[in-house]
């Protein structure tokens, strides 16, 4: 009995200390990690989908409060008009959340492009989503708010072969982007009008 109690106590104390240490490190590095992600992952993804924009979309951004958090929107200026906003949503993939940057043309209400930011998908399978342009091109021009689904689920999107879960995650993220955009459209348009380009 004594041995049993000792085992429970040792494991509990050890796990608690471990949790405490990790929480401390997590909260002290969070800010730095966010800025690194912005620089190395979101930055290139934003530049890629807002290709041809005449401004710097990474620095031209505004925040809109969503619930308790703030959501960043990146602005793309085309032909002198700030018409495209890009923002990130998430869908659940095979190895956790897949972050997807969705760019929407505010004037036409159509998707300007999508690009994957953070993910933990299997190398060579789901991770191909990074470079699989044919898959991502399917979202281009789709009206925002459309119920995007892979063909297996009765939708229009052809999944990447062997990576249905990852493809589904991207569709989910795009659907969520639609929901979010629907909710925030007035605020987004208002903020956009302050950008002269």
């Amino acid at each position: 009995m004594r041995e049993m109690i000792k085992m429970v106590v040792v494991l509990t104390v050890l796990s608690t200390l471990s949790g405490g240490l990790l929480a401390a490190i997590q909260s002290s590095t969070q800010e730095r990690i966010d800025s690194q992600v912005l620089k190395f992952v979101k930055g290139p993804a934003i530049q890629k989908i807002l290709e041809g924009a005449t401004n710097n979309p990474v620095s031209d951004r505004f925040a809109v409060p969503v619930g308790e958090e703030e959501k960043n929107f990146f602005v793309g200026v085309y032909e002198g008009k700030p018409e495209v906003v890009a923002f990130e949503t998430k869908g659940s993939g095979y190895g956790g959340d897949v972050g997807v940057m969705v760019a929407v043309n505010v004037k036409t209400g159509k998707i300007h492009g999508v690009s994957v930011t953070t993910h933990n998908e299997t190398p060579g399978v789901g991770a191909r989503v990074e470079t699989h342009e044919d898959f991502k091109k399917q979202f281009k021009g789709v009206p925002i708010g459309t119920e995007t689904k892979v063909k297996k689920d009765g939708g229009e999107i052809t999944a990447m072969s062997g990576a249905t879960l990852t493809s589904r995650a991207v569709c989910t993220a795009v659907r969520r982007a639609g929901d979010l955009y629907g909710k925030l459209e007035p605020q987004i348009k208002e903020k956009l009008s302050t950008f002269s380009g």
């Binding site: 494991l11 590095t29 190395f40």
Partner: peptide, 23 residues
Amino acid sequence: ACYIIIIATFVTVVELLMQAYAY
């Protein structure tokens, strides 16, 4: 079990530090 907790903790520490300083 105890070793794994200890090791996993330090691995997560490395992961966080690497994300922060060598992305």
